[in-house]
Amino acid sequence: MTMARQVRMTVNGAACEGLAEPRTTLADFLRGELELTGTHVGCEHGVCGVCTVLLDGRAIRSCLMLAVQADGADVTTVEGLAEPDGKLHPIQEAFVEEHGLQCGYCTPGFLMAICELLESNPSPSDEEIKDVLGGQICRCTGYQSILRSVHSAAAKLGGGRSATGA
C-alpha cells in the first residue's frame, strides 16, 4: 500500500496521530502533519544533523527514518524541552547564556543530541562532547561557544535533573 496510513506516536509526552504515506520521512511528518516546525531540515541525507530528534530517548536523524517506522514510538522534539510557561530547559538556558547559537537554525538538533549525551553522561569531557557533536554541523559559531554551553548545561543539570525532563 503506497497510500497514506494513520500513524500514532507519543510526541513530547502527548499522544499524536496523523496521516503519512510510507515514503513520508519522520522529519516531514513532524513538521507538516504534526505542525512541529521546531525540528528543521538541513540536508536530507543524514550529514548535517539539523533534523535530530529523540526517538525512545536516542538522538536520531529524522530525515533518515520514515514516519511509519516511528509508529508507536516515543519522540521528543525541541518543542518538548521548555516548560509550557516559557521557562527554558537548562540546556536551552546554557545556550542563551553562553551564546551557543547565532542563526539558531541548527540549534534544535544540537539540543536534542546534547539531551541524549547528558542523560547518559552527566559530566562529559571535551572529547566525549566532541564525539557526539561531531555529528551536528553548525556554520555560524565555530563550535567554541557550543562546547561551553554543554559544560554549562551539565553543571546546571548537576542537581540530578534528567536531561530530557523525564
Binding site: G46, G49, T52, L55, R58, A59, I60, R61, L64, M65, A113, E116, L117, D131, V132, G134, G135, Q136
Partner: peptide, 8 residues
C-alpha cells in the same frame, strides 16, 4: 559515523 547515526 556519529552516535546519532550509530543509534539507527
Amino acid at each position: 559515523g556519529h552516535p546519532q547515526i550509530r543509534n539507527r
